[in-house]
Amino acid sequence: MQLSLEEVAGVTIVLAAGRLDFAAAQPFQVQVEAAIAAAGKGVVVDLAPLEYVSSAGLRAFLVGAKAAKAKGVGFAVCNLRPEVQEVFDLTGFGKVVGVHAERTAAIAAVSGA
């Protein structure tokens, strides 16, 4: 998978593209944890170009959510494709990490956290 980072008003946006499978999960988790450690207000993972996520990938979101909570910053995802949304829905991961339709809503939610 490919990751790119940008900063919007104190919020770190991680754009995640490709496949978040078992092989990609560990490096992705390291990046997310680093982004949270360095974050001002919080981190939004934009999943618009993400094609696939498995349970190994979900683990990285759970670790990220725990790290963000421990640090007291926001953590959210946005722009889920229908297949990825289904994985979040079937596992109840919307209760673990904030899920938003659009990036602006995710940034607003994270900034207010």
Partner: peptide, 14 residues
């Protein structure tokens, strides 16, 4: 799957 971030573990999700 109703648990929040604090109680959640990853086992069995696959």
């Amino acid at each position: 799957t109703s648990l929040g971030v604090d109680e959640r573990s990853i086992g069995g999700l696959g």
